[in-house]
Design a protein around this nucleic acid. Structure first.
Length: 450
RNA sequence: GGCCACGUGGCGGAAUGGUUACGCAGAGGAUUGCAAAUCCUUUUAUUCCAGUUCGAUUCUGGACGUGGCCUCCA
C-alpha cells in the first residue's frame, strides 16, 4: 500500500487519502475541555492524531503539514468545576492546560502547528452567529441564539441519523425557547457572576460547537483535509460543526475526511468521567512510563475498543524493555518497509508485529536491521528517551539505594565464590522483590531496574 | 425504539475466498551453579444456523451475545 488510506466517517468506508494540496495538508483535531485532569481516554485521541500527524509529515514533509488542536477554555463544565472546587475560572483553565501539556510531553506527542484557545476567538464566534442569523438559519429568543437544524438539508449525514428519528427518540428536556427540539445553541446569556462577552444579544457566551467551526476556518480555511476526534463527538458536536460551517462558508464541503477513534474501556465499559471509571494520564505515566502508555494505546487499531488493564500495561512494559536492548542513536534515514502498514488505516498492531520481527533480526545481527528497527520505533514516537533517561524513570520507582544494591551484589558474589548458592539465591530474590534484576553473564554480574 | 461497531487459540490482537500473523502465557531445547536475559523448536482459534462457492473464519441472510451513539464526553 503506497497511498494513505483512512476510514472516512462520512462514508463509513476506507478511502484513499488525497489532500486538497500536497503543499498544504491540513489536520484539525478536537482538543480537551480544560476542567479536570485528562484521562487515558483523552490520551488515546491524543496519540492517534499525533500518529496521523507523524504519518502525514513522513509523507509530505514537516513544513507542509498543518495540525491544529484547540483548547476549550470556556464551557459550562468549566464554570461548574470552578464553583465546586472554589477556584477562579482562569486559574482552573491555566492549571489544567498545564497538566495537559505535561501529559502531551510525557506521551511524546509532537506539538501541533497551532493550539488556539476558544476564549481568544469569541469575536469570531459572534461574527459567525451574526452571519448565520442574516442567512436566516439561526434565530434569537431572549438572549439565546439557536441554529435551525431544519434549514440544513444534509443534517445527520455524518452520524447517519435521520432527523425524524432523532425527534421521536428525544429524551432530553427541551428548552421552550427552541422552535425545534433539534436546534442547538450558538449563543446563550451568562449570569452576572459567570464569564461573558458583550454581544448584539446581550452579555453571554458561545455554545460549544461554534469554536471548532471558527478556529478551523481561521487556521485551515473553509474546506480542509482531515477532521478528527473521538467517536463520541460524531453526534452532536461534529454534525453541528458541519451544519454551521457549511452554511457560514456557503460551501458543500467542510472537512473532506472525518476520522474517529474508538474508546478506551475498563472491563469492556467506556472510560468516562460520568461513569467514574477513569485513570488519569498522570497516574498511568507515573506508574508505567509514558512510552509504555503510548505503546499500549497503539496495541489495538485506532477504531477498535481498547481495554485498559494491568495485564496490558505489564505486557507492553516487557516488550519495551526487550526492545531497549537494541536501542541505538544510529538511526536509518530511510522510511522502513513496514511504514506501509501505517498507511493502511493506521494498522498499528500489524506495524508492531513488524517491529518484533525487526528486533529479532537486529538481535541476530543482520546488517542494518538495528538502524531500521530504531527508525521504525521513532517513527511512531517510541525510543524518544535515552537508555539513561529510561533507567532514571525506573529508578524513581524503587526505594533502595544504588550503594545498597552494589553491596548486596558483592555479598552475593562472595557467597557464590564460597559455593554458598543458597545464600546467593536468597540475596538475588531479595533484590528482585525490591525491583532489581540480576544477571550473571560471562562471569560478570550486572543489574538493572525492573 | 432508531442507528453504528464488534464476536478469532488460555489472554491481547492482525489478516485472509484455499497456504505461518504477531505478542504474552504454557511446553521442550541451547545457555547457566541455579536463574534472568536472549536464541531455537512447539501445543491451542475463527459464536451459532442457513445460503452462495469446487472451497468460507473471510461474502450474503438470520439467530444469539457484547459494547457504543441518540444528553456532557476523546
Amino acid at each position: 500500500m503506497n497511498n494513505l488510506h483512512l476510514t472516512n466517517s462520512l462514508t463509513n468506508k476506507k478511502e484513499i487519502f488525497n489532500p486538497i494540496s500536497k503543499e498544504k495538508v491540513s489536520l484539525y483535531a478536537c482538543g480537551p475541555t480544560v476542567y479536570d485532569s485528562p484521562h487515558v481516554g483523552n490520551a488515546r485521541a491524543l496519540v492517534v492524531f499525533d500518529l496521523l500527524f507523524r504519518i502525514l509529515i513522513e509523507l509530505y514533509g514537516k513544513q507542509k503539514v498543518k495540525y491544529i488542536r484547540n483548547i476549550t477554555d470556556i464551557d459550562d463544565k468549566i464554570i461548574e468545576a470552578s464553583k465546586n472546587k472554589k477556584i477562579a475560572i482562569s486559574d482552573l483553565t491555566i492549571l489544567i492546560t498545564k497538566k495537559f501539556h505535561k501529559d502531551c510531553e510525557d506521551l511524546f506527542c509532537l506539538k501541533p502547528t497551532k493550539e488556539p484557545k476558544a476564549t481568544d476567538h469569541v469575536n469570531g464566534m459572534i461574527k459567525m452567529t451574526e452571519k448565520l442569523i442574516n442567512k436566516k438559519v439561526a434565530y434569537e429568543t431572549k438572549g439565546h441564539v439557536y441554529f435551525s437544524v431544519a434549514s440544513f438539508k444534509n443534517y445527520g449525514k455524518l452520524s447517519n441519523k435521520n432527523p425524524n428519528d432523532l425527534k421521536a427518540g428525544a429524551r432530553v428536556e427541551v428548552s421552550k425557547l427552541k422552535k425545534d427540539p433539534l436546534d442547538f445553541v450558538l449563543w446563550k446569556p451568562s449570569d452576572k457572576n459567570d464569564p461573558g462577552w458583550d454581544s448584539p444579544w446581550g452579555r453571554g457566551r458561545p455554545g460549544w460547537h461554534l469554536e471548532c467551526s471558527v478556529m478551523s476556518e481561521k487556521y485551515l480555511g473553509s474546506n480542509f483535509d482531515i477532521h478528527g476526534g473521538g467517536l463520541d463527538l460524531i453526534f452532536p458536536h461534529h454534525e453541528n460543526e458541519i451544519a454551521q460551517s457549511c452554511v457560514y462558508n456557503g460551501t458543500e464541503k467542510f472537512a473532506n475526511y472525518w476520522v474517529h477513534n474508538g474508546f478506551v474501556t475498563m472491563n469492556k465499559e467506556k472510560m468516562s468521567k460520568s461513569v467514574g471509571n477513569i485513570t488519569t494520564i498522570e497516574d498511568a505515566t507515573k506508574k508505567y512510563s509514558g512510552q509504555v502508555v503510548r505503546l499500549s494505546l497503539m496495541s489495538a487499531q485506532y477504531k477498535q475498543p481498547l481495554d485498559w488493564n494491568n495485564e496490558l500495561l505489564v505486557e507492553q512494559s516487557k516488550t519495551l524493555d526487550k526492545w531497549y536492548s537494541m536501542y541505538s542513536s544510529e538511526v536509518s534515514e530511510k522510511t522502513p518497509e513496514c511504514f506501509k502498514d501505517l498507511l493502511d488505516d493506521m494498522n498499528t498492531p500489524l506495524y508492531i508485529s513488524k517491529l518484533h520481527e525487526l528486533f529479532q533480526q537486529s538481535q541476530n545481527g543482520i546488517k542494518d536491521k538495528k538502524k531500521e528497527f530504531n527508525k521504525a520505533c521513532r517513527l511512531i514516537g517510541l525510543f524518544n528517551e535515552s537508555i539513561e533517561d529510561r533507567a532514571k524513570f525506573k529508578k524513581s520507582r524503587i526505594e533502595i539505594s544504588e550503594k545498597y544494591i552494589l553491596s548486596k551484589i558483592e555479598d552475593r558474589n562472595r557467597a557464590k565464590k564460597d559455593g554458598n548458592y543458597k545464600l546467593a539465591d536468597q540475596i538475588r530474590e531479595e533484590l528482585n522483590k525490591e525491583g532489581i534484576d540480576i544477571k550473571d553473564e560471562k562471569g560478570k554480574t550486572s543489574w538493572n531496574y525492573k
